[in-house]
Amino acid sequence: KTVHVNGVQYDFDNPEQAERFAKEMAKKAGLQIQFHGDQIKIE
C-alpha cells in the first residue's frame, strides 16, 4: 500500500501498517484520509 501525505509518498508492504500510519498522520495534522484502492491519500 502507498500512503500519500501532502505529495510525499510512503510505501508499506503491510496494509494494516499503512492504515495505522495514515490515521496517525491525519490525526496529527488534522487532515482528511481518502482511500483509493491501494493508495491512501491524506490532504
Results as ranks from 00 to 15, higher is better:
1 K>S: 12
1 K>C: 15
1 K>V: 14
1 K>A: 11
1 K>R: 12
1 K>W: 14
1 K>F: 15
2 T>L: 05
2 T>I: 10
2 T>D: 01
2 T>P: 03
2 T>Y: 00
2 T>S: 11
2 T>N: 04
2 T>C: 15
3 V>Y: 00
3 V>C: 07
3 V>A: 04
3 V>D: 01
3 V>G: 03
3 V>E: 03
3 V>R: 02
4 H>E: 08
4 H>W: 15
4 H>A: 07
4 H>D: 07
4 H>G: 02
4 H>P: 02
5 V>E: 01
5 V>T: 03
5 V>Y: 12
5 V>C: 15
5 V>R: 01
5 V>D: 01
5 V>N: 02
6 N>G: 10
6 N>D: 09
6 N>H: 08
7 G>W: 00
7 G>T: 03
7 G>C: 09
8 V>L: 08
8 V>H: 08
8 V>T: 06
9 Q>V: 10
9 Q>D: 09
9 Q>T: 10
9 Q>K: 12
10 Y>L: 06
10 Y>A: 02
10 Y>R: 04
10 Y>N: 04
10 Y>I: 11
10 Y>S: 02
10 Y>K: 03
10 Y>F: 11
11 D>G: 01
11 D>C: 15
11 D>I: 11
11 D>N: 09
11 D>R: 01
12 F>Q: 02
12 F>E: 05
12 F>H: 01
12 F>K: 02
13 D>P: 05
13 D>T: 03
14 N>Q: 04
14 N>R: 01
14 N>E: 10
15 P>W: 14
15 P>V: 12
16 E>K: 06
16 E>T: 08
16 E>R: 03
17 Q>A: 14
17 Q>M: 10
17 Q>R: 01
18 A>D: 05
18 A>S: 03
18 A>V: 03
18 A>M: 04
18 A>Q: 01
19 E>F: 04
19 E>A: 05
19 E>S: 02
19 E>K: 05
20 R>E: 14
20 R>C: 15
21 F>W: 08
21 F>D: 08
21 F>S: 04
21 F>K: 01
21 F>G: 06
21 F>A: 06
22 A>S: 01
22 A>Q: 07
22 A>V: 11
22 A>E: 09
22 A>L: 12
23 K>L: 10
23 K>F: 03
23 K>M: 07
23 K>D: 13
23 K>N: 12
23 K>G: 07
23 K>T: 11
23 K>W: 02
24 E>R: 00
24 E>Y: 01
24 E>P: 00
24 E>M: 00
24 E>G: 00
25 M>D: 03
25 M>W: 01
25 M>E: 10
25 M>K: 00
25 M>Y: 04
25 M>Q: 10
26 A>H: 04
26 A>E: 09
26 A>Q: 09
26 A>D: 06
26 A>M: 10
27 K>N: 11
27 K>R: 09
27 K>Q: 11
27 K>A: 13
28 K>T: 11
28 K>F: 03
28 K>Y: 04
28 K>N: 11
29 A>E: 13
29 A>S: 12
29 A>R: 06
29 A>M: 15
29 A>K: 10
30 G>H: 09
30 G>S: 05
30 G>P: 01
30 G>F: 02
30 G>V: 01
31 L>R: 01
31 L>C: 15
31 L>H: 08
31 L>W: 02
31 L>Q: 06
32 Q>I: 14
32 Q>R: 08
32 Q>F: 00
32 Q>G: 10
33 I>E: 10
33 I>C: 15
33 I>S: 05
33 I>G: 07
33 I>L: 09
34 Q>L: 07
34 Q>R: 09
34 Q>Y: 06
35 F>K: 11
35 F>Q: 13
35 F>V: 14
35 F>E: 13
35 F>L: 13
35 F>A: 12
35 F>C: 15
36 H>A: 11
36 H>C: 15
36 H>S: 06
36 H>T: 08
36 H>K: 02
36 H>M: 12
36 H>G: 10
37 G>Y: 01
37 G>L: 00
37 G>P: 13
37 G>T: 08
38 D>P: 06
38 D>N: 06
38 D>L: 03
38 D>F: 01
39 Q>A: 10
39 Q>L: 12
39 Q>E: 13
40 I>A: 07
40 I>L: 07
40 I>C: 15
40 I>W: 00
40 I>D: 09
40 I>T: 06
40 I>H: 05
41 K>G: 10
41 K>Y: 15
41 K>L: 14
41 K>I: 15
42 I>W: 01
42 I>D: 09
42 I>E: 08
42 I>G: 07
42 I>A: 06
42 I>N: 07
42 I>R: 02
42 I>V: 11
43 E>Y: 05
